[in-house]
């Protein structure tokens, strides 16, 4: 049976892993390859590397660290941030990434999703969506969320964008529920359930993990394929082997759980 995936997300700045809360106040966490292999050894199913400086600064990802990670890792990984074109994606994939994730560039030019899918296959095209509930009760998409000073709310409804992104060729959706992100009060289950109902490709929950119970409920109650988290793993509050044992005990299919 297909396992539910546990996906630590590592923010990368200038070739180092950093961490922040609600996209701010980043502190150095260490060398990318050292941290990546530590998560791999702990039983992470996949890793996401988010180049937090490439996108806001208009640069593309430095493929040097991508290649170092690809040489060391024997689990899949995805690179996000700073990918705006088929050529950007090609460099990252050729350096050894398994998937590329696009967010703001896809909002600016939705056709990019289809171009990437045609060039590399839908399986490696991940669309990341930053979403927040507005005063009128609708979830809407945010862009440029990598830089709080530039983040903008769009008129696009999150649920419409989820449908459109799949139609264009997205092979996976990562839904980052911004209001929950970094505050550890649990994943945004109502929003994830609403998106799940419209999402026939794999759906990854992001934003809000604080306890092992939050992971159990997001798999059980929102039927997501994977759960992404950063701070609880980086800070050591949740150890992946413990998490997997608890998920297994709760009847959630996972890899490596005694």
């Amino acid at each position: 049976m297909l396992s539910r995936r546990i996906i630590p997300c590592l923010d990368v700045r200038d070739g180092r892993v950093v961490k922040g809360v609600r996209f701010r106040d980043h502190v150095d966490m260490g060398d990318i390859v050292a941290l990546a292999t530590r998560y791999r050894d702990a039983g992470a199913d996949e890793l996401v590397f988010y180049d937090i400086t490439a996108s806001p600064e208009g640069r593309s990802v430095d493929s040097g660290w991508v290649e170092r990670v690809a040489r060391a890792l024997d689990i899949p990984f995805c690179v996000a941030g700073g990918i705006r074109s088929v050529e950007d994606a090609r460099r990252v994939l050729q350096a050894g990434a398994d998937k590329i994730s696009i967010n703001t560039p896809a909002l600016e030019r939705p056709a990019l999703i289809g171009e990437l899918a045609a060039a590399f296959g839908t399986q490696c095209v991940v669309v990341g969506i930053d979403s927040m509930r507005d005063a009128d009760g609708q979830w809407r998409v945010r862009r440029d969320s990598g830089d709080p000073a530039r983040t903008r709310a769009l008129a696009t409804r999150t649920l419409d964008w989820v449908v459109e992104a799949q139609r264009l060729g997205a092979g996976e959706i990562v839904l980052n529920c911004m209001a929950s992100d970094g505050v550890r009060q649990g994943y945004d289950l109502p929003q994830l359930r609403a998106v799940r109902a419209l999402c026939s490709v794999p759906l990854i929950a992001s934003g809000g993990a604080g306890t092992i119970g939050h992971f159990i409920e997001v798999f059980r109650d929102a039927d997501v394929d994977g759960a992404l988290a950063a701070s609880v793993f980086h800070g050591g509050e949740i150890r992946i082997p413990d998490l997997k044992r608890a998920l297994h005990g709760a009847g959630v299919e996972v890899r490596h759980a005694a």
Binding site: M1, L2, S3, R5, D45, T122, Q123, G171, E172, S200, V201, P202, D225, G226, R255
Partner: peptide, 15 residues
């Protein structure tokens, strides 16, 4: 073949 449980593409760790 895609169904409500088995989504396609098949992506992830399986036994």
């Amino acid at each position: 073949r895609e169904d409500r449980v088995a989504r396609v593409p098949h992506m992830g760790w399986n036994t």
